[in-house]
Write a protein that binds this DNA or RNA. Structure first.
Lengths: 340, 340
DNA sequence: CTGTTAGCGCGTTCAT
DNA sequence: ATGAACGCGCTAACAG
């Protein structure tokens, strides 16, 4: 009367394979591992057949316990709903698989409590390395973890954590944006960012924006966060008599979504009356209004690099923390053509 | 000369805690587990302090090895770039965390080879249960796995696999779409679907669409896949002299993206000349043209239900495979207002 | 080339 | 209420 949904068979162990093949566990272990060349062809064949027949799969938990290598990589992500995070994660996962590692992803939903809970879980599963894309407001946990295993930060720094960092060259990206906007004739700019909660990449973008404005005599600029006052502040900017054609600069994909939504609610025609350039290149950018001009991040490559960086450390590489800053790529669409 | 990126400290074990507290490993083990009430208050206190001081974390691998419970749940996803998958995954992850489980997500990128590789990995890590959102064209592996652990399917069936299924009531969703389109005056419909590669939910939507068309004397309808011939076939539909106002019905978010992109390339004004309704409700739907009418899936709830279903089986529940079909929710926007 | 032994870190009988 | 001893599945050390 076993229903189909009731698992019954228990796992085949190395002992059963050894017995079936008429050898010792150690010999089977050698076959499993990388010492296969030490075996006589005849025994290797018998073991192979026994494994095949019993459908044996080595237990990674037990292997990890013995060897201290779990082949597990942890990744902790601030916001899985952000396409950027997913894209990076995809790159990490691809690289992991190619190197025989398995990725465990944890999403914190920007919650400090969940971050610490997840870190504890990852540690308890003996992940060999950690890829971190959170604020690390819970820096204590992270710091303590970093004394046990290598970590690499993605996109954002964590203060007091001297770890490798893979991310965007934010200064260059902002410069590209300002150059492009100025060249297209926009003069009055508004940087729209998610709340500055300590995320270093956001701060860097804001700082680079303000520095760029200060350097450019032609440009005026303000910064706005997508918080409670966003709606009114944006309206203020839109109706103010400015220095010239106006444009928004969304500091990431989420901000681009908020800004565009708000513009629509105000009844603006996208993007005849106001320009827009956005960091990140989401798949729907081409569909909105005349298309949203983007600064694309090489997200997959960021993910792959993060993993390779980790692998490097796992291989014993030491030395000071390294930084990998990728350049953004400008993709021009309709949203930066003034007057339609 | 240890750089900051070189992990050094090795993990604290139960033995060290036992020694520090002046008790045996078994006593500490009881403290860790659920036998805490069996301990004398004094010893419990000493253990607690030792754990605190040494920052001890039980090794889940070792626990799992001994008890046969890893507290690991595996999830295998066909396409992580599909927002639907991510949303479901988020629900699963939330539920996992609340119940002390950790989720391991694997993305197959719709590749059969990766699917089998990932299944092997998940099995080797002794995941206790599996949430499956793939075609399972590699059904052999899945079937064999299902004899070892409980599984629950999400969104799509796998033939020959008698497992619980959590997904959408596709017939009802399609009926809602057709009713809405007909009521809005559309008469000539085109269902746009990703390629029918065996994905059961796609097939169900197509079948329900064709059945619905056959039942409705007012409606005409065809089905189109987003494959190589998509562009020309769509054009044929658009220029053909039809029975009346035309509308597209995108069978999911990806199809909606393809369809909208193609309409734009044809120079259509969205959505004055043609209607559109789309399954899934992505965050950018409101921004495109006059806004895309959606049939939203309760993705988070689907994820939570999938996990709870699994938990149920892990708790020993048996019986035939169950089906959980959620209703889609119609969200009307501008894309289903004929003549702008 | 292969078998024997001894753990990895932990939970679980048995004793006491 | 607590400790000693064994084993989970596997690998590494040493024999032979």
């Amino acid at each position: 009367m076993n229903g189909p949904s009731l698992p019954t068979r228990s796992r085949v162990t190395i002992s059963e394979v050894a017995e079936a093949a008429g050898v010792s566990k150690a010999t089977v272990s050698r076959y499993i591992g990388s010492d296969r060349q030490l075996l006589a062809e005849a025994t290797a064949l018998r073991i192979e057949q026994a494994i095949e027949r019993l459908d044996y799969r080595p237990n990674q938990m037990a292997r990890g316990l013995k060897r201290g290598r779990t082949r597990l990589i942890g990744m902790i992500v601030a916001d899985i709903l952000n396409p950027y995070s997913v894209a990076v994660m995809r790159g990490v996962e691809t690289a992991c698989r190619q190197h025989g590692y398995t990725l465990v992803v944890c999403n914190t939903d920007r919650s400090t409590e969940q971050e610490s809970q997840h870190l504890a879980a990852l540690r308890s599963y003996n992940v060999e390395g950690l890829i971190v894309n959170t604020l690390g407001h819970h820096a204590g946990e992270l710091l303590s973890l970093h004394s046990e295993l290598p970590m690499v930060l993605v996109d954002r720094k964590v203060e007091a954590l001297q770890a490798d960092l893979v991310g965007l060259d934010n200064r260059d990206a902002v410069r590209q944006a300002l150059d492009h906007l100025q060249q297209r004739g926009y003069r009055d700019l508004l940087l729209v960012s998610e709340p500055l909660d300590g995320t270093s990449s956001r701060q860097e973008r804001v700082a680079a924006f303000e520095a760029g404005i200060a350097r450019s005599p032609l440009l005026q600029g303000r910064v706005l966060q997508t918080d409670g006052a966003f709606c009114e502040s944006l309206w203020d900017f839109l109706v103010a008599s400015g220095a010239g054609p106006k444009a928004l600069f969304a500091a990431n994909g989420i901000a681009a979504l908020s800004a565009t939504r708000q513009l629509r609610e105000f009844g603006y025609r996208l993007f005849e009356e106001i320009g827009l350039i956005a960091l990140d290149d989401l798949d729907w950018y081409p569909l909105v209004g005349s298309g949203i001009t983007a600064l694309a991040q090489p997200t997959e490559q960021i993910g792959v690099t993060a993993f390779e960086c980790l692998l490097d450390r796992l291989g014993g590489a030491r030395g000071p923390a390294r930084h990998f800053d990728f350049k953004a790529q400008l993709i021009v669409r309709g949203s930066t053509h003034p007057r339609g």
